[in-house]
Amino acid sequence: MEQLIEQLKNQIIEALNFEDMTPADIDTDAPLFGEGLGLDSIDALELIMLMDREYGIKLADPKIGKTIFRSVRTMAEYIQTNRTK
């Protein structure tokens, strides 16, 4: 799991162009939206695309997004259970 979290942080940094950031700067359990990383709705779409592109996960139900994208850890847990690649 820790390896997946590290990989996911690197993918988030690249996808969202956080040029000044390293994985260590991202709190695994901090909220991704609002406080914490302060992501916006476009970032949310990028994360959805990232899940599809990198892990073969298609999120069809927008309601579950709120739970999945609560933090890097919740994302990683969902990926570990549902990934197809």
Partner: peptide
């Protein structure tokens, strides 16, 4: 086919 929302805007 992975259209980038960040590029699209």
């Amino acid at each position: 086919y992975y259209p980038s929302p960040a590029l699209f805007v």
